[in-house]
Amino acid sequence: MSAHPYANLTPERVMDAIESVGYLCDARVFPLNSYENRVYQVGIEEGEPLIAKFYRPDRWSRAAILEEHKFMFDLVEEEIPVVAPIQIDGESLFYSEPFMFALFPRRGGHAPELSSNADLELLGRWLARLHQVGSWESFEHRPVILGAQDLAQAAETVLSSGHMPSDYHAVYASIWPQLVQSLEQQMSSRPFRTIRVHGDLHPGNLLLRYEQLWMVDFDDCVQGPAMQDIWMLLSGARDEQLSQLDVIRNGYEMFRPFPYTELSLVECLRTIRVMKHAAWLCQRWDDPAFPIAFPWFDSHRFWSEHILTLREQQAALQQEPLVLFA
């Protein structure tokens, strides 16, 4: 048997876990696109299929996962369209050795067109309401976006993992301290408020169907600036990003003041994501799914492009931040 827990998460074990909380499966178990956790669509006798999410062992504490769930329940209570876990006898998190797991209703849809002003404005409205709820209290057990410390931890993971070819170590070791210094300057010059945010709001975590938007997968929800959920909706050249921001702002300000002072964080947050993504791949390479899904990771080309991206981010951090006028 494989040493990795997910290698032994067979369809039979998935069905046994779901039936342990009172459902009867019909033997239709379809894996969905997920790497950090394992997610399945499972057919239910005389009912709609459910989505079962098996959390990666030893990643989150039970308290941290329950905070994720509570955030979603808070949002649902305010009629914000998120796909929250199903509660059974008041419980939303269950256990099947060695996994904690949760069940969700199935929601269909496609990623919104971020080139569409209508979709961007709709996202702006829902984000403002999400952030309004997120500001009501703080996480105690979830991560906090820390900036320079996040970069230092990511760099340590990469350099100690053995995955980066040795001929890139020197140049990487010279770049990341410069990025840390730039982030410290940017993030300390304008203190920002942290709130509960989604944390990973890329288009793949948005479902749009018949003008109904659903926000899904709060697995990376964190305590951070509101801009963390906004910058990931931006793409293209500077002028394009400013145009997109203006549309998002129009929707956002219907419910909450737009966080203008956090625009200087956009490139900081992008840099954190770039470095943490490489560190994440290093950490997860022992998972059999990762070499299959990311076969290019252990190549010289990947690390060459990664270092080029870090240099581009260092240049971006020296430029004037994006500016919108209230």
Rank of each mutant, 00 (worst) to 15 (best):
Q186P: 02
D220R: 14
R238V: 05
C268L: 10
D167E: 09
S264H: 14
P105F: 03
G90L: 01
Q314F: 10
G224I: 07
M254C: 13
V266S: 11
H163L: 10
H202T: 10
D246H: 15
E79G: 04
V133P: 07
S188D: 13
H300W: 02
A170C: 05
E312T: 05
R56W: 12
G236A: 00
R56K: 13
F302A: 10
Q319T: 07
S61I: 03
S235M: 09
S92I: 04
W231I: 01
H4W: 05
D220M: 08
A7I: 03
R249G: 01
A118R: 12
L146T: 14
G22P: 09
I292S: 02
H4D: 08
K276P: 01
A326L: 09
H300D: 15
R190G: 11
R59K: 14
E46F: 15
L183W: 06
I145F: 05
E12G: 10
L281D: 01
H202S: 05
V82H: 00
S189W: 05
P191D: 15
N33I: 09
L308Q: 11
Q244D: 06
G134V: 01
S135Q: 08
M254F: 07
Y172Q: 05
D26F: 04
F218I: 02
H277D: 08
E140N: 15
Y252A: 13
L208Q: 08
W285E: 03
Y252D: 11
R38C: 14
P143D: 15
E305W: 02
Q178C: 12
M164K: 06
V197E: 03
L130N: 13
S174R: 10
P177C: 11
V14S: 05
A111N: 12
F30E: 14
P57D: 03
M215D: 00
A3P: 04
L183P: 09
T271A: 12
D119R: 03
D200L: 13
C268V: 13
E211K: 09
L9H: 06
D219G: 01
E78T: 12
H141G: 01
K70P: 00
R129V: 03
A7F: 02
W296V: 02
G47H: 01
L146K: 15
G47N: 02
M187H: 06
R311L: 10
E137F: 07
S188R: 14
R129Q: 14
L324V: 02
S166Y: 03
R270Y: 08
Q185W: 08
L66S: 03
A3W: 10
L130A: 14
W285V: 04
P225S: 05
L317Y: 06
M254I: 07
Q223C: 08
P321A: 09
I88A: 06
L242E: 00
S61F: 04
L269N: 07
G236T: 00
I44D: 10
C282Q: 03
H169Q: 05
H69A: 11
P177V: 11
A293V: 02
Q228A: 05
S138Q: 15
P98M: 04
C221K: 04
L310G: 08
S160L: 11
A128S: 09
V274Y: 05
M275Y: 04
M254R: 15
G224R: 09
F101W: 02
P57A: 02
L281W: 03
P112W: 11
T309C: 06
P259R: 11
C282N: 04
T309R: 07
L183A: 09
P177M: 09
D16A: 12
R59Y: 15
L317R: 07
